[in-house]
Design a protein around this nucleic acid. Sequence first.
RNA 1: GGAGAGGUGGCCGAGUGGCCGAAGGCGCUCCCCUGCUAAGGGAGUAUGGGCUAAAACUCAUCGAGGGUUCGAAUCCCUCCCUCUCCGCCA
Length: 425
Amino acid sequence: MLDPKLLRNDLDVVATRLRTKNYELDVTLIASLEERRRTVQVKTEALQADRNTQSKSIGKAKSQGEDIAPLLAAVSDLGEQLDTAKAELDTIQTELNEVLLGVPNLPDDEVPVGQSEDDNEEISVWGDLPEFNFAAKDHVDLTEASQMLDFETAAKITGSRFVTLRGELATMHRALTQFMLDVHIKEHGYEEVYVPYIVNRESLQGTGQLPKFEEDLFKLADERDLYLIPTAEVPVTNIARDAIQDANDIPLKFVCHTPCFRSEAGSYGRDTRGMIRQHQFEKVELVQLVPASQSTEAHLGLTQHAENILQKLGLPYRKVNLCGGDLGFSAARTYDLEVWLPGQNKYREISSCSNFRDFQARRMQARWRNPETGKPELLHTVNGSGLAVGRTMVAILENYQQEDGSVRIPQALQSYMYGISEIRF
RNA sequence: GGAGAGGUGGCCGAGUGGCCGAAGGCGCUCCCCUGCUAAGGGAGUAUGGGCUAAAACUCAUCGAGGGUUCGAAUCCCUCCCUCUCCGCCA
């Protein structure tokens, strides 16, 4: 959520900046709601103050044995007035709140102008693209001879966009997770957390998935209003919801491995082949909660942490600075890491590292106490994948394929896979 | 699933209709006293919001929501959570 004061005082500036995110702010609606809110709130609170004083004087009179009948008569119609005013205020505030919860975060100044991912700015490229003196296959064709990567069986068990892994591929999938966690914990100083995979509405609203993107989520079919997590970002960031951190306890740096569940509504026909886009996938997520002054630095650092995984695995990738049009709802700035996939002959997103500034923290009331002022201040939240496990496995299969159809195991991963150095399908 | 107890400020804990945003204690911050391994005295110490240049002022919040009442931490209803015992169980 944006700072309401900003929307009150600089509505037009906000509208201008949001246009780079392809979002048209309804300035007229917000201004008029805000105007009504002010009038009605002032009126309501004045009535409340009036009632409070009068009720107090009734109490006093009663305790002194005076006749309170005339006092009661004086407040008789106050209650009704107050109810009306309160109801009106409630309506306005609910509406205003709904509007504000739907307004995306402001992009940072450094965000490139652009409409789509084609306008993203390439920042750096790492690694040499593999050269094959044979026709490179994609991960589906590569594994076809075995049952190690099996979409049909998953379709039987559940439906489309699920996968079943067997044998060494299932091991590699788990090994990757373990490897990533170890690097982030031991080399990058993150604290591992284990969290619920089912979350409530408040948590999803805190990180920005609700109320606008409900159709992307799997919702449980009972009356409890619970959802499967689309990313560990939701439960992990919400650790800090409605809390004030001690200055000594921040920055908080969490790493968390979870499955992620996404309905992929609206992406029918996209990436239907292979395990690029699944309803269920594993991810190792990095989350940092830091004071405002440190978030830019934390964002750069976190991105580098994700890059280190790709480098250790020897996977060629590039880093792009997302343009306004491609930026997510809650993000102020995002670096995507795109790994090279020979099977598709292009770079594909494998990690998305974002700085949310105070946008999520305001929704969550996630704060810390600044010892210099003694006052609570909103934290800044930063997160990114470190990395998406399924896509990393796809990248290894495709980049490390050999002419005979086998796949070499990256050196860094071998000790996590009982020492084997290749997989034959 | 059955029976019971409970949710109050950073923590403990009092408060069963008004004088309660809330005693007391602990912790923390500042000041004073005291030459000594610790103690004593004093002051301060919740969060969000409105209005405002800022303050003054003011509203809300005692798990959440609703109700009764001129007035609710306190009474009533619903829900959530925690604890104890029993049952079941990865």
